[in-house]
Simulated scan of single mutants.
Amino acid sequence: MCVNVARLALACLVWLPLAALAQQQPEIQRPVGIAQAVGVVHTLRQIPEACTRLEGTFTGDPAKPYDMKPVRTSPSCPARAVFMADAKIQPSAAMGWKLNDIIRVPSASCSGQQAIVHVWRKPAGAAMQRDGQDRARIYLEDARQQAAAGRLAALPAYAAVLEVEGNACR
């Protein structure tokens, strides 16, 4: 009996560091958010580069306990990045995405249940050239010529993946 316990303990010690290596650390570290009530819309995160705000709501529905949606912050906001809201997008480090942020929001009415949002960032291909004042500037006429020649630089991209942890409450 003791031998089996010792083997199990040894196996756990071997697997724990491997599991920790598999877990990617986000670029932004943040504490667990404030518990939110059912039906209350709350902002999860703003992504100013993409002119997007992520909003979430606990629904109280056991089939879909949490709803998240991207909202455009302003129609006149000049986006310097794109937010990919398509459900088919599955960002991963292997595909060139970087784990940017992990947002945890507990449910106020259902202890033990929380929404976890993984925000991913995909850097643009090439960095913009900087001028003598170390500023990245875009000149309208240069941009028009590049667009006409089909040589526009790719924009950085963001995506968010939602998962709900814990059992549904009734």
Rank of each mutant, 00 (worst) to 15 (best):
E27L: 15
I47W: 02
V117G: 02
K69P: 00
V38T: 15
A157D: 03
A149V: 05
R104K: 11
A63R: 15
T59I: 09
K122A: 01
V71F: 10
M84Y: 08
T73G: 06
V105Q: 01
R144C: 06
A9T: 05
C12D: 04
P91L: 05
W15M: 13
R80S: 10
S109G: 09
N167D: 13
L99A: 03
T57L: 01
I28L: 14
M1L: 07
Q146R: 15
I102A: 08
A157C: 05
Q24R: 13
V71D: 05
S76T: 13
I102R: 13
G56N: 05
I28W: 09
D142S: 07
E49R: 12
A148Y: 02
A11P: 00
L54H: 05
V3H: 12
I89R: 11
M95Y: 10
A79D: 07
F83M: 04
A160S: 05
A11F: 09
D131K: 07
E165F: 09
P123F: 06
A136E: 13
L152T: 08
M68F: 01
P75G: 02
A81I: 10
D134N: 13
L10M: 06
K98A: 09
E55F: 05
R137H: 11
H42C: 00
I89V: 15
N4I: 08
A11E: 03
P75L: 07
K69C: 00
R104G: 00
H118D: 12
V41F: 05
R30D: 03
Q90N: 14
E141C: 05
L10Q: 07
P17W: 05
D86A: 11
P78E: 03
T52E: 02
A20F: 08
T57D: 00
G39E: 01
A37H: 15
E27K: 10
H42A: 09
V38N: 11
K64N: 04
P78S: 02
C2V: 06
Q133S: 12
C77S: 01
R53F: 04
W120G: 03
G96I: 08
V117T: 14
E27F: 06
K88T: 15
A81R: 09
R104Q: 10
D142C: 02
V3L: 14
C110L: 06
A148G: 00
M1V: 06
R121P: 02
D67G: 09
P26E: 01
A148S: 10
C2P: 04
Q145D: 08
K88A: 15
I102K: 08
P70N: 08
Q36T: 06
A11K: 02
V119G: 09
Q25D: 12
A159T: 12
R45M: 14
Y139D: 09
V82S: 14
R137V: 15
M128A: 15
V5G: 02
I89M: 09
V82K: 15
A81S: 10
S76V: 12
A63Y: 11
N167R: 12
A35V: 07
N100R: 13
P123R: 07
G96S: 01
A19F: 01
V3Q: 12
A115N: 03
Q29S: 15
L8C: 11
P62A: 02
